[in-house]
Design a binder for these strands. Structure first.
Lengths: 329, 329
DNA sequence: GCATTGAATGTAATCGAATTCTGACCATTT
DNA sequence: AAATGGTCAGAATTCGATTACATTCAATGC
């Protein structure tokens, strides 16, 4: 194991100088710097990260806590976070919580043990409802989920606006009786519900809303019961990609034609929404950007712990496809 | 910062005893153990991981190197690896290489610097072709990609067999002129090609194969040119989920009916393959299991570095759906 | 010519736990 | 009563870097 004193000996300087060169401090003369770099290369010296972390009390690590990395939204966010962290010479520790508050707590403990510089967190409803940054020894940036009034950095979609515009789109295409399936378990789902309600109210239309747990199977069941009722809604709106999936499955079991019998629109521009027949109208989230902004915000927060908290609200993009085509009157 | 000597003082024992209790060594009396555990709880003592890692020379970390975590196959593998690592009190460092040998090299360097106990790696073709375990200071388990004769632990799908059975399925449903689009860049794609060829040969059928780069756009283009030629193949087989996606897109641009005009089958049981019309016949890979077995193999290798290398070959499951229905003769 | 400055560099303390060693203490065995 | 052995306190050392502090030496000011 070649260590810093070997490099120092080889270069004919002190260990302090080697350390300074490697840390990029400006208090080293050019000849010394050259000698050190040469010795490092000749010996193929690699600093011991454990020793460095112990002494410098910096872990060069950040945490990412999500419910499930298999959710395409989080997959994309994670890729963005990994990319940015890597380019800042930082490591990422990833945790899956499955929306379980206990796992959430143990992940946060893990982060404390690892002495991460900060954490990007998508909290469960339960954690969000009692969330306070003061409970943690490291800065946290929330992603995707946030509740008005919480004093925390966050990067979010403008859920209200996105749902409002999606509803407007349906209404302007002639759909009046619109059923809305929303994820009742998350703040995000409820915010989208509010946007939907507001849009309906602006047209003096009555709402028909159904809260569902955020699971494909449950959404599927709920959609089935709506599709079997009379009168059939003219359109159906899903507050998430998962729910949209459940609805799509349900529609395939019926003889209903989309959009002639019933129009469909939802959230998350996943690859399959473009491939099904008819293709689905969705709100696309800027997922990679959300991840990138989250880590950006986190790094700024680490750099200046005292500054005021900020919420970054990004806009969704309405992608109109066949499933919500204009109603023939 | 509460540290081990505070715990020792509180419990009225020596630091050595605290260390022994925490390490679970059997050379401690029950009363001592109790006193220590109590003091740990009272003080909420958390060992400093950097100090522990420096002294014990164990990082409790393993690496996972894949081309892109957004590939659903790797997403699922990564979830399995995270789960298993977590339950073994280990961390995972994830790296995306984008199939770029330079990034691959820098990821492997990173793993060395982090002193990981081992790495799970899905190598690019280039790395695989010159792969030798002796080049690395830590054990490596290959996933998804492997070439006969390489002395390395690996967890794989039986690509030859899966492609053979998929081809058999098409042939037994009356399809004779079958076009095969395969990923020419990866060992996996070429192995599936061999399985396809063998199945065709066993029926004395001529093959029509097309190597494509592993990108949706390229697969799309290649599929278009095949669909425009005469005579039209009776079926088309894709060697990966990505290529299947490209083909599906191309089919939507034509007026061709599936499976009446042309049947389709491919790899990877992604959610959308069940949702498109008609639903697609695929080979499902046991992805979560592949990840789980990979880390199992890695942990065994870490425990006994000397033992013989093993390749674990898992079977794909043929899921027959509408897209490959029997040809009417 | 001597004190003063300050940039460059060296020396040694330090980070916090793991581990080794010595010696004390007690209980059991012979 | 001496010998043996198990348990553990306490002190010292180690892991390999970072960094506070000390030192050197040339340049500058008066």
């Amino acid at each position: 194991m070649v260590q810093i004193k070997d490099v120092a000996k080889r270069a004919g300087v002190s260990v302090a100088s080697v350390s300074r060169v490697l840390a990029g401090l400006p208090v080293v003369s050019e000849p010394t710097r050259q000698k050190v770099l040469e010795a490092v290369k000749e010996l193929d010296y690699r600093p011991d990260l454990a020793a460095r972390r112990l002494r410098s009390r910096r872990s060069d690590t950040i945490g990412l806590i999500v419910s499930d990395i298999r959710n395409p939204f989080f997959t994309e966010v994670s890729r963005a976070v990994e990319d940015m962290a890597f380019s800042h010479q930082m490591r990422v520790i990833l945790c899956n919580t499955d929306e379980d508050p206990e796992k959430e707590a143990s992940c946060l403990e893990l982060m404390r043990d690892e002495k991460v510089h900060g954490v990007i967190l998508s909290p469960s409803s339960k954690l969000l409802s009692r969330y306070s940054p003061a409970d943690y020894s490291f800065p946290i940036v929330l992603v995707d989920r946030y509740e008005r009034g919480i004093k925390a950095d966050a990067v979010l979609l403008d859920n209200f606006d996105a749902a409002y515009r999606l509803t407007e789109h349906l209404v302007s295409n002639g759909h009046r009786r619109i059923a809305c399936l929303y994820g009742s378990a998350s703040a995000t789902g409820r915010q989208r519900l509010e946007g939907h309600k507001a849009a309906m109210a602006s047209h003096q239309l009555p709402v028909q809303v159904h809260g569902v747990p955020p699971m494909v199977h449950e959404a599927h069941e709920a959609a089935m019961s709506i599709l079997n009722q009379k009168p059939l809604p003219q359109a159906i709106l899903a507050s998430s990609g998962l729910i949209l999936l459940g609805i799509t499955e349900a529609l395939r079991e019926t003889k209903l034609r989309v959009p002639e019998d019933i129009a469909v629109a939802g959230f998350d521009n996943l690859p399959w929404t473009r491939l099904v027949e008819p293709s689905l109208t969705v709100i696309a989230q800027p997922t990679y950007e959300i991840g990138r902004e989250a880590i950006e915000l986190l790094l700024q927060r680490i750099a200046s712990p005292g500054s005021a908290v900020r919420q970054l609200v990004l806009q969704g993009e309405l992608i109109a496809r066949s499933s919500s085509a204009a109603r023939i009157v």
